[in-house]
Amino acid sequence: MTEAATIPASERRLEREAAKRRRSRRGAAIAALSSVLVIGGLAVLVLTSNGWPEVRETFFSWTEFKNAFGEVLSGFWLDVKVFMGVEVAVLVIALALALIRVSRSSGLFPLRLLSTVFVDVSRGIPTVLMVYLIGFGVPALQIVKPAPDPAILGAIALTISYSGYVSEVYRAGIRSVHRGQHDAALAVGLTHSQAMRLVILPQGIRRVAPPLLNDFISLQKDAALISIIGPVEAFRAAQIIQGENFNFTPLVAAALLYLAVTVPLARVVDRMGGTEGAVR
């Protein structure tokens, strides 16, 4: 930079920079204009449609919104507790599963087999069905009395479902680290598990952080699934009010709350992606 200042700019360079500025101004103008056209067009289309006045009343009623928001929000607090708890559990369990699956030691063979079966099964069953099965199946077993809180059972079901997925993400990360890294770790005298902990995992996990957080976006929405076994979380709370007043605004309120936690995470993922070369 300091060097550039000492070199006098040639005609040619000034010309090129001016052209670049013109091009970027034109780009910005086109982007602005096309946005106005597309968004404005859509707005006109919706707002002038025959059904709009009725839709506005049943989906976007401000009075209904204010009326329902408190209860939907307190329901959402349960969603937040569930997905945060599940996220922590999934991070730990999925890592354990991945480490077992990449291990070579013959002593771990039975565990490796179990992990593989667990991952296949947990990924293969629809999450909604898993919630149902755990939510009704575990109480029926009557192992613990009284039957555990359905919200906890729902959280367990989500943990099972997502641990399978996330362990595969971890495993992909571990396998993406070049074999030479493992060789070098052994060559400096580390044990296999030190090599894993100090060399392979830090690199592998960094690489798969974006897909891993992507799975968490999906998990934060799926927290709503626990409602089918009873707990009144945001979606269920909204549904109850909607049933009483025949107005869908509470559901829109719930949708906004889910967006409030998923969109920021999506932006974080966007920022992380593409830090290592690749197409920007």
């Binding site: 070049h178 030479g180 005298g189």
Partner: peptide, 19 residues
């Protein structure tokens, strides 16, 4: 592991730990 601690290895492609 004990043996490798008594030897040193330098790789063609360096294999430094990038993190």
């Amino acid at each position: 592991v004990a043996v490798r601690r008594r030897l040193g290895f330098v790789f063609q492609a360096y294999n430094l730990f990038p993190h």
